[in-house]
Computed example of a mutant assay.
Amino acid sequence: MTYRLTRLSLHTRLPLALMAATLAAPLYAADYPSQNIDYIVPFDAGGAVDFTGRLIAEAAPDVFDGHQFIVKNMPGGGAVIGQTYVSKAPADGYTLLAMTSSVINNALTKEVSYDLDSFTPLALYNLDPGVVVTAADSELTDLQSFLDAASNGDVSIATPGNSTSHHITAVSLAQQNDLGFRYVHNASAAMQLQQLMGGHVQAGFMSLGEAVGPAEDGSIRILAVMDSQRSDLAPDVPTWQELTGEEVQWGTFRGIAAPADLPEDVKVALEERLGQLLTSPAFIERMNEAGYQVNYRDGDAFREYLDSTADKMEQVLPTLDTAS
């Protein structure tokens, strides 16, 4: 009898529970989006992540039924503040993160409350390959002279900071090729350029997008691009692989992610709409005009890229303290 009463009680309460859950739950794909979307940029305004995020925001209403992407800058802690905010936000599709390699670096090198599994990758839209650069008047005029110098002694290298993706790139290449680097860490690409042009360092590792302008005005020289193919932004610059035969692909990326546990129907809706936006001729033209290439990958391909990048960084991290 007790068993039958329990069953009856459950049947009686079940419709009420379902009704309550339905009323409390957000409306998903059929009604998505029904409001504006917060786009969290975990850096100050004015940088590449912020700038490209605002290009995305300009185009968003066309594919999000008139709803806007509200760009919100949340800098601090090397992007930790903004990344933490998104990792703890409701997984409803209305809070998105401007995702960069700093998510991986921070999770591996700092005490943070999140890791890659705290996010749902949705789209990668820009791959900015790393480059090796020297001052325009440097005696290191090509990659071979740079490698020869580093093989015979310490070459001073400007980076945008300890444990940044460019620092990790340099450490990885030094390990693989038995090169001697002495690192001078800066706080930005602008400071790297000052170090180079002032003759304070011999070379630097930075992003192609950051180097193209100074190279075009004759301030620096780009020795090699660390990608599988030459870039349209610098078609005359060879790849590291062309010159050495070694397959090298390092760089920074810019993508979009949501909190983990995003409902599948919302994830599908977001991926489809972002795919339309990021591959549209108008968006690609705006990006190209600003000096950025669009390298679109969907959520699954973005996840594969993230995992591969994290594996590379984990292999290098144990040596960062001694190589800093």
Results as ranks from 00 to 15, higher is better:
residue 210 E to K: 03
residue 166 H to N: 15
residue 22 T to H: 10
residue 214 P to R: 01
residue 187 A to H: 09
residue 287 M to L: 09
residue 88 K to T: 09
residue 41 V to I: 12
residue 231 S to T: 06
residue 31 D to H: 15
residue 133 V to L: 06
residue 37 I to W: 00
residue 2 T to N: 14
residue 160 P to R: 07
residue 309 T to D: 14
residue 17 A to Y: 12
residue 198 G to V: 04
residue 295 N to S: 12
residue 211 A to K: 01
residue 229 Q to P: 08
residue 247 E to F: 11
residue 245 G to D: 00
residue 213 G to L: 11
residue 289 E to H: 14
residue 216 E to W: 07
residue 42 P to Q: 02
residue 4 R to T: 07
residue 93 G to H: 09
residue 217 D to W: 09
residue 171 V to W: 01
residue 57 A to S: 03
residue 187 A to V: 13
residue 298 D to A: 04
residue 26 P to V: 01
residue 184 V to W: 08
residue 282 A to R: 12
residue 26 P to E: 01
residue 235 P to H: 01
residue 256 I to G: 07
residue 2 T to I: 15
residue 101 S to A: 09
residue 79 A to W: 02
residue 291 G to K: 04
residue 265 D to E: 05
residue 137 D to K: 12
residue 186 N to P: 06
residue 179 L to M: 06
residue 59 A to E: 09
residue 2 T to R: 14
residue 241 Q to S: 09
residue 315 Q to N: 09
residue 306 L to F: 02
residue 193 L to F: 10
residue 269 A to C: 05
residue 91 A to H: 05
residue 105 N to H: 11
residue 170 A to T: 04
residue 264 E to S: 10
residue 162 N to R: 12
residue 295 N to M: 06
residue 57 A to M: 00
residue 15 P to N: 00
residue 15 P to K: 00
residue 105 N to Q: 13
residue 231 S to M: 05
